[in-house]
Amino acid sequence: MDGVMELVHTAVTSPWFYLVLFAVAAIDGFFPVVPSESTVITAGVYAASVGQPDLVPVVVLAAAGAFVGDHVSYTVGRLSGGRLERRLRPGTRRHGAFAWAGRTLAERGGLILVVARYVPGGRTAVTMTMGAVGYPLRSFSMFAAIAAVSWAVYGALLGYLGGVAFENDPLKGVAVGLGLALAVTAVVEAVRFFVRRRRSAAEGAAGGSGVASVGDGGGEDPEGTRRVGTFPGA
């Protein structure tokens, strides 16, 4: 255990850690198996317990990396979206789902993007989809910045609280910070689950009363046949 603590201490307090933090946050934006959140939390713990790294650069670089990574994911979606749309036959369930995604993101894409930043894996799916359906880059960048900064502050403060609570045992502080992060993620997932259930129930009731829903394989949706123009200012 002492060897692990020494290894983590050496890594986190190294000047190179800032560069690693930026890279991890950026890569996690389009390759969601990199532990960016735990890296930010660990940095916050050590900032509180040993004074290194400095918390302000941690927040700035984590936010900057997340912002860059989200734009890489958005660009991948943008480049592949046109080909994907051309392959979808109007009137099919997949075409309806694609059209529904475009309309939903047009209505509340900013909120979805900010919330998805706190859902591991979900952030990549959302940013890539926003690129694929042609969500305006200017609006995307604005909400991606809000999401990245809020996420970086959130992760650093969680770690900092853990470091203050266990000043003499940073590993316990990391465990507390990660536990709090998991609790927040569980709450977000629970809310999303109940929202989906309510939406499904509402759509079922609408279907039962003879109202056709998007993507049911029925007639073409006149709005869903065009991706460009769905978003104001696109």
Rank of each mutant, 00 (worst) to 15 (best):
Ala202Lys: 12
Lys172Tyr: 04
Ser141Ala: 14
Thr104Lys: 11
His95Gly: 05
Val56Trp: 12
Gly208Asp: 14
Ala152Tyr: 00
Val72Trp: 02
Val59Lys: 04
Arg103Val: 09
Glu223Val: 10
Ser200Gln: 15
Phe194Gly: 03
Ala125Trp: 09
Ala62Glu: 03
Ala47Pro: 14
Arg89Tyr: 10
Leu55Ile: 12
Arg78Pro: 03
Ala43Trp: 01
Arg138Asp: 04
Ala201Glu: 05
Thr42His: 07
Arg227Asn: 15
Val184Asn: 04
Thr225Phe: 14
Val115Gln: 02
Ala97Thr: 14
Arg94Pro: 07
Thr10Ser: 11
Leu158Phe: 11
Phe231Asn: 09
Gly233Arg: 08
Ala144Cys: 07
Ala62Met: 02
Val12Lys: 03
Val211Tyr: 06
Ala181Leu: 09
Gly224Pro: 01
Ala156Trp: 03
His9Pro: 06
Leu180Trp: 02
Val191Glu: 09
Ser150Ile: 04
Glu223Phe: 07
Ser49Tyr: 11
Pro32Cys: 02
Asp216His: 11
Arg199Phe: 10
Gly122Leu: 00
Val4Ser: 12
Thr92Cys: 15
Ala145His: 01
Ala125Glu: 11
Thr13Asp: 09
Gly131Trp: 05
Gly163Met: 10
Gly69Thr: 00
Arg226Leu: 15
Ala43Lys: 02
Tyr18Ile: 06
Ser200Val: 10
Ala145Gln: 02
Ala26Lys: 01
Arg197Met: 02
Glu189Pro: 05
Ala23Val: 08
Leu105Arg: 06
Arg89Met: 13
Leu161Phe: 12
Leu180Ile: 07
Tyr135Cys: 02
Arg108Ala: 15
Trp16Lys: 03
Trp151Asn: 00
Pro35Ile: 07
Gly229Met: 10
